[in-house]
Nucleic acid binder design. Structure first.
Length: 462
RNA sequence: GGCGUCGUGGCCAAGUGGUAAGGCGAGGGUCUGCAAAACCCUUAUUCACGGGUUCGAAUCCCGUCGACGCCUCCA
């Protein structure tokens, strides 16, 4: 039985879908105005793992992730660069899609964009005004009336009275209540705008997700996800908007990932302590990033530093070792123990993942299976005997989104390495250890690790 | 100040009432010309601290201290 921690109830609950074996899932994507960083990668990976596991458990998953391509920061950045805002955002959308692909994140079922959802958004706002949940101000802004929504604050568990102290009203805003938030913002001179019943303007941040959710997945969904920094105000306001509009419960489960920590602080664009996804991938593999996430708890802060990354890298190498073929001289063993360990790994894997996606536990089951496989190989198992366990191993690793592939080099480089290996093999045959070790050092310099065995020498790019 | 998450070995981290998973690191060993990888052994009488409940608590309750996040744009 799958259990999920629900931010809304602050409890771990049994997972029950609206429709049998179908999951409607919406995850808040990014605002596209510069390179995405590894914190975004963490979030994307977390929900990718959740999605993959739901599929593994037999659910059909509709997975929607939006792009915020209309926003103050995009407008400012575009102005700086002298570029059209929508061109700039499109550039970063393509860019982020590439990042996600590099990270082995499955493509979403749909990627709606704000700029293409204006009619929906306007209709949504009109509906809210009709029902008295929103009002147009003199200046052309439209605000959501929080006092009309009796439930307001239930996701983030805060009361309007407590919030007012910190609330502020910008100059020019004409709100009835300080916590009222913008559904529509009147365009300032020279800004990108869309025509609306309230004049030229653009949507507020929260309304897009409500509108696109409705359009893509309907009035009610199973899972709504995002970083825990979105709980308030973004998700709180989404609930307010959607439930006021439809009169129905919006999402059954609200899931939030913890923040990636760099130097004891949240990694964020505003703090500037950023490592971009591209920068990361130029140094380490997508599997390493994923393993870092898997080693932790998705809801907790995740430590991002050389020590945790080195450990993740070693973990990947260790898992890869399970996929190595049998030795050429293997003569077979009694494979009963190995068969049993497949079953136990699958069981432990599922038990861990069923418990609110306990990926650290799931990975532990992979380590155990990998140990069984390696032991069997050391004891002389044949490839035929290893194969079922290795297949199961690959399947489970795949559910976590791990590729466990070796790095590829160019064919010229490979040829160069092979030539050196051949020379070293010859030297070793003649017991010229000095020469043989020189070549090994040379290969190391080139980024090649070699392993000698009785079957010969194998090597790979680091 | 309010709300929330959490404090487990050198590090990352499971475990949420029945007596501390897993990984990294470290030490020893097997294998190897030497390595590397793999495998084997060792590495927390103890779970921030102080009370309490219980036959029994890392796990439940109360208090204290500390960390992180949100309360303003943020995955």
């Amino acid at each position: 039985m799958l259990k999920i921690y629900n931010t809304l109830t602050r409890k771990t609950e049994e997972f029950q879908t609206l429709e049998p074996k179908r999951v409607k899932m919406y995850v808040c994507g990014v605002t596209v105005y510069n390179d995405a960083h590894v914190g975004h990668a963490m979030s994307a990976i977390v929900f990718d793992i959740i999605r993959r596991y739901l599929i593994y458990r037999g659910y059909e998953v509709k997975f929607v992730m939006n792009y915020t391509d209309v926003d103050d920061k995009i407008i400012n950045r575009a102005k700086q660069l002298g570029e059209e805002p929508l061109k700039l955002s499109q550039r970063y959308i393509d860019d982020y899609a590439n990042d996600l692909k590099s990270l082995n994140v499955l493509p979403a079922t749909a990627n709606p964009q704000v700029s293409q959802a204006m009619p929906l958004i306007i209709k949504f706002i009109e509906g809210l005004i009709e029902k008295g949940y929103a009002y147009a101000a003199q200046n052309g802004d439209v605000y959501f009336r929080v006092t009309k929504d009796a439930d307001y604050g239930r996701l983030s568990n805060r009361k309007l009275d407590d919030m007012q102290a910190g609330a502020r009203i910008e100059i020019g805003e004409q709100k009835d209540h300080p916590m009222d938030f913008a559904l529509w913002k009147a365009a300032k001179a020279g800004e990108i705008f869309w025509e609306s019943p309230w004049g030229k303007g653009r949507p507020g941040w929260h309304i897009e997700c409500s509108a696109m959710n409705l359009a893509e997945l309907g009035e009610q969904i199973d899972i709504h996800g995002g970083g825990n920094d979105l709980i308030f105000p973004h998700h709180e306001n989404e609930i307010a908007q959607t439930e006021s509009y439809t009169g129905k419960e919006f999402s059954r489960y609200w899931m939030h990932n913890g923040m990636l920590q760099l130097g004891g602080e949240k990694m964020s664009k505003s703090l500037g302590n950023i490592v971009s996804i591209k920068e990361f991938l130029s140094k380490r593999s997508a599997d390493v990033m994923r393993m870092l996430v898997l080693n932790g708890t998705y809801r907790a802060p995740l430590m991002f530093n050389d020590e945790t990354l080195d450990a993740a890298e070693r973990n990947i190498e260790r898992l890869k070792s399970a996929l190595k073929p049998a030795s050429a001289s293997s003569s077979g063993i009694n494979a009963d123990t190995l068969s049993a360990s497949i079953e136990s790994a699958k069981k432990n894997f599922t038990e861990a993942m069923d418990n609110d996606f306990n990926t650290a536990g799931a990975v532990a089951s992979l380590f155990e299976l990998s140990k069984s496989i390696n032991t069997a190989r050391d004891n002389g198992a044949t490839n035929e005997q290893l194969s079922p366990a290795q297949s199961a191993f690959k399947e489970l690793a795949g559910v976590l989104g791990l590729k466990l592939e070796d790095k590829q080099g160019s064919s010229e480089k490979d040829a160069e390495v092979n030539a050196l290996i051949a020379e070293r093999t010859e030297a070793r045959k003649n017991k010229q250890w000095k020469r043989s070790d020189e070549i090994r050092d040379q290969l190391k310099e080139m980024g090649v690790t070699i392993e000698d065995s009785k079957d010969g020498t194998t090597w790979k790019w680091n």
